[in-house]
């Protein structure tokens, strides 16, 4: 009897210890990134392009990488939204939610979700060579779109699954056309779409392996989609491999910038998620 109670206590203590350790690891990672990055984080870092001798520790910043990443992710989100949203509407509202076809589509997206970004990068690279494309913003957008379409589809699909039959029928009864019904549904699931976008931005903006092959790297801001584009993860990766200390410090500052972006995205995802649960969807 005592043994039983003792075992219970020990195991519970172990569980709490494991959970607290996980929390500590997260805090430790954030602490290291912030304490290393903060001293090198200057206004120049976020407002200037790399100037001559930047990679030897001279003046300049990583505005090219910040803007490059933003352009890349904006393009990718736009493309993947045009593909994901119709798919979700089709498998939830035109086909039956749990029809065989819908489930097969969901299953294939689950598998696509598991495919590592390096494979998307290599695949994108091969396709680009086939079409004679150079490493460019467009190439990066295509590869990152492939990466985030599964994430977007899955997370919109989750919200769409909770739309009740009444909500679909009510506009129909009021005499709405199919298109108008779809509009009502899209408005209903719009907080879910926002969450999906934020999630995809978070995944896409931080991924290095896809853009390594496809987007290239440059010191200027791309003005056309056919030009190469610098990205934040690669800016961190390349600067960290430099032997010069100032350049390495800039890599830490760039890492801090990326972490701040990810934190902001994560908090807004929570905020919109809460809003959605309030509206009982």
């Amino acid at each position: 009897m005592i043994m039983k109670k003792l075992e219970e206590k020990i195991v519970k203590a172990l569980m709490i210890f494991a959970s607290v350790t996980i929390l500590m690891v997260l805090l430790y990672i954030l602490y290291i990134i912030i304490s290393k990055g903060l001293p090198s984080l200057t206004w120049d870092m976020v407002s200037k392009n790399p100037s001559g001798g930047f990679y030897l520790g001279k003046e300049g910043g990583i505005l090219n990488a910040i803007l490059g990443s933003l352009m890349l992710i904006a393009g990718s989100v736009a493309i993947s939204m045009c593909i994901s949203l119709p798919i979700v509407l089709y498998i939830n509202f035109i086909r039956k939610k749990d029809s065989r076809f819908s489930n097969v589509v969901r299953f294939s997206f689950d598998i696509l979700f598991g495919i590592p970004s390096i494979v998307y990068g290599a695949f994108g690279f091969m396709i680009m060579i086939y079409f004679g494309l150079q490493a460019s913003l467009l190439g990066g957008i295509i590869a990152v779109s492939l990466l985030i379409i599964p994430i977007m589809t899955r997370s919109i699909d989750e919200v769409a699954g909770s739309v009740t039959q009444d909500m679909i029928e009510a506009p129909k009864i009021l005499g709405a056309t199919k298109f108008e019904t779809v509009k009502v549904i899209v408005r209903q699931i719009s907080p879910g779409i926002t969450t999906a976008i934020l999630l995809s931005v978070g995944r896409g903006i931080g991924d290095a392996a896809t853009v390594l092959f496809t987007a290239g790297y440059t010191d200027s801001i791309p003005v056309s989609p056919m030009q190469p584009a610098a990205t934040l993860p690669l800016a961190i990766f390349f600067q960290l491999s430099s032997p010069i200390e100032e350049v390495q410090n800039r890599a830490y500052a760039a890492a801090l910038i990326l972490t701040i972006i990810i934190l902001l995205l994560s908090f807004s995802t929570r905020y919109f998620g809460r809003k959605m649960s309030k509206s009982k969807l």
């Binding site: 996980i22 290291i32 931080g206 392996a209 990326l258 972490t259 990810i262 934190l263 929570r270």
Partner: peptide, 22 residues
Amino acid sequence: FSPVIDLLSGIPPVIYGVWGTL
């Protein structure tokens, strides 16, 4: 606790790499 798990999975690989080398 759920944001802890969310954040850990949201941190980009390159940040884990920086943290690992440090």
